[in-house]
């Protein structure tokens, strides 16, 4: 990327800081300015509380995103490919999809347990409710984009494969799957972003991680820490979406301009 592009992108972030600085100086007393937040950041970077929250939230997102991809991609490809399979599954999924993450929280607290187990030296505790809500955020964009990806493939590619002797499963393997990948990739980038959105909502109420850290900073009155939490979530969301984008692009060498 050239320097001009970097300059423009840096200006975008500096502009945001500028707005914040002005609003902080003129606005309500409760809004900390960039300087106060920077101070809180310095304090937190040295603290294990901060890094534990980051680790926990990241692991939750990673786990939930992986499960969402493992279920959403094959399910979406099948729904897009087979009308019958779609008729059996899609209406139920569409009914569940509009339910916002917050509305799931009471259900998850009642039904989904917190699992504790240990692997040799380390012991873990997995709050399956939070992972489930995070999963929902990633799952639907991945699912819908996989379906759309299959449906966007021109029929003539499948016909060409059949006329070259491909059996149904070979057509799926060589036409449907690779043809849908660009759209699946888009779904994953969007899904990664929404995984973070849902994670933070769930953590604020159910506990642990960056969401809880941010929320307890509010209830405890240490307002600059709220912004430490928010900025950290923003950076992690951005970084993880970018990683997904680059990994995806590396899998799609045949796309025009896929390296951008």
């Amino acid at each position: 990327m050239d320097t001009a592009k970097w300059a423009k992108r840096s200006a975008s972030i500096l502009g945001l800081l500028g707005v914040w600085f002005v609003v902080g100086a003129l606005g309500p007393q409760t809004l900390p300015g960039p300087a106060a937040v920077a101070g809180a950041f310095v304090g937190y970077v040295g603290s294990p509380v901060y890094w534990n929250a980051i680790t926990l939230s990241t692991l939750r997102v990673l786990g939930a995103f992986t499960i969402a991809a493992l279920i959403g991609v094959p399910l979406g490809l099948l729904i897009g490919w087979s009308v019958v399979f779609g008729d059996f599954t899609y209406p139920a999924l569409e009914l569940v999809r509009p339910i916002p993450p917050i509305a799931w929280i009471p259900f998850t607290i009642l039904v989904l347990p917190s699992l504790a187990f240990s692997l040799g030296i380390a012991s873990f505790e997995i709050d399956t409710g939070i992972v489930f809500i995070t999963f929902l955020g990633a799952f639907f964009p991945i699912l819908l984009n996989a379906i759309a990806g299959v449906r966007s493939i021109d029929d003539e590619y499948s016909r060409a494969a059949q006329s070259l002797g491909a059996a149904d499963w070979q057509t799926f393997r060589h036409v449907i799957y690779p043809g849908a990948l660009p759209s699946v990739h888009t779904g994953m980038v969007v899904g990664m972003g929404l995984a973070w959105v849902n994670l933070v909502a769930a953590e604020m109420i159910s506990g642990g991680g960056l969401g809880f850290m941010t929320w307890s900073a509010y209830t405890g009155g240490s307002y600059p820490v709220i912004f430490v939490g928010m900025i950290t979530i923003g950076i992690l969301g951005y970084v993880s979406s970018t990683i997904v984008r680059y990994i995806g692009a590396s899998q799609l060498p045949w796309m025009e301009g896929s390296t951008a």
Binding site: R159, A160, S163, L164, G165, V175, W254
Partner: peptide, 18 residues
């Protein structure tokens, strides 16, 4: 369809991912 009857389409249908 059958491989003994090969087809060439109006729009090029090489698999773009291959």
């Amino acid at each position: 369809p059958d491989p003994s009857r090969g087809v060439v389409f109006q729009s090029n249908r090489l698999f773009p991912w291959k």
